[in-house]
C-alpha cells in the first residue's frame, strides 16, 4: 500500500512523496507521485496509471484534503504518468491539467474536456499555486519530445520526471538515495536507453545547474538530496545516452 511521506514542510507549504508500493502487482512499474501543497491549494505531479489510482488517492487523502487539488502537472504523456486522468476528473471535474502543448490533443484520449488542459509552451511557464510560483522547466527529449520538469524555488525541489529514475530491486525500498555509487548502477541502463538525445541532455544539465536544488525527486526510484543532486547532474552529463545496448 502506498503512503504519503512529507519531504518538505515550511508553514503551509509542503511537498508529499507518494512512493514505494511493495504490494503493487509485479508487472506494473513502480512510480512516485508528488503533491505540492500551498495554503488551500494542491498540485499533483504525475498522478500515475489507472491501476494504482486507489492507492494514490487514499495515500493523498490521508495527508491532504483531495478537494484542494487545483491541478495536475503531467511531465509527459506516458500511461504510467497520466492514464488515471479520467479518474481524477471523475473526483473533481474542474481540475486543470498542465502538459506540454505537444500532447494537448493526445491526452484527451485518457479523459478530460478541452477546458481541462493548460498547454505549456516549449520554453516553459510559471504555474501559480496558493501564491507561490512554480516553474515548468523544459526537458524535451528526456525522454518524451514534449517534456517538462517542475521546479519549486521556495522549497528548492526539482521534480525531474524520468530523469534520475532508477529501477530498483525490491530490497532497495528507501525513500532517499543513501549510497550514490550503488544507487546509480540501477539508473544507468534506464538513462542510456530512455534518454534519446545527447544535446537535449547537455542543455538540461546546464539549465538545472543554474537552479538551487536541495532535492531532485524523480518519478521512479529514490530521491536525490544535497550533494547527490550535483553528483547526479555530473554523472548524467558524462553518460552516453540514446544507445540500444551498453
Amino acid at each position: 500500500m502506498k503512503q504519503a511521506h512529507c519531504i518538505f514542510e515550511e508553514d503551509d507549504h509542503r511537498w508529499l512523496a507518494i512512493a514505494r508500493d511493495p504490494s503493487k502487482p509485479g508487472h506494473i512499474i513502480d512510480t512516485n507521485e508528488y503533491v505540492v501543497v500551498k495554503g488551500k491549494e494542491a498540485l499533483l505531479c504525475d498522478p500515475g496509471g489507472i491501476e494504482i489510482f486507489p492507492s494514490v488517492f487514499s495515500a493523498l487523502s490521508a495527508e491532504c484534503d483531495p478537494t484542494r487539488l487545483a491541478g495536475i502537472f503531467s511531465s509527459h504523456q506516458d500511461p504510467d504518468i497520466i492514464s488515471s486522468l479520467a479518474l481524477w476528473l471523475e473526483f473533481k471535474p474542474e481540475l486543470k491539467c498542465y502538459i506540454s502543448w505537444l500532447w494537448q490533443s493526445f491526452l484527451p484520449h485518457f479523459g478530460g474536456e478541452e477546458s481541462t488542459f493548460v498547454p505549456i509552451p516549449d520554453p516553459g511557464m510559471t504555474i501559480l499555486l496558493g501564491g507561490i510560483e512554480l516553474q515548468a522547466i523544459p526537458a524535451h527529449y528526456l525522454h518524451s519530445s514534449g517534456n517538462f520538469h517542475l521546479y519549486d524555488p521556495k522549497a528548492k525541489i526539482l521534480f525531474s520526471g524520468d530523469v534520475g529514475a532508477a529501477l530498483l530491486p525490491a530490497d532497495h525500498n528507501g525513500l532517499y538515495v543513501e549510497d550514490f555509487g550503488r544507487h546509480i548502477r540501477h539508473a544507468e541502463a534506464f538513462h542510456k536507453r530512455w534518454m534519446g538525445s545527447d544535446k537535449a541532455k547537455r542543455d538540461w544539465c546546464e539549465r538545472v545547474s543554474r537552479l538551487e536544488i536541495d532535492m531532485m525527486v524523480p518519478q521512479h526510484g529514490a530521491i536525490y538530496r544535497g550533494a547527490d543532486v550535483q553528483r547526479f547532474i555530473n554523472w548524467f552529463s558524462a553518460l552516453e545516452v540514446g544507445v540500444l545496448r551498453s
Binding site: 500500500m1 489510482f53 486507489p54 492507492s55 488517492f57 487514499s58 490521508a62 479518474l87 471523475e90 473526483f91
Partner: peptide, 11 residues
C-alpha cells in the same frame, strides 16, 4: 468502481 474503491481505502 475504481473511485469507490479509492474512497473505501481512504476511509
Amino acid at each position: 468502481s475504481i473511485l469507490a474503491e479509492a474512497i473505501r481505502l481512504s476511509g
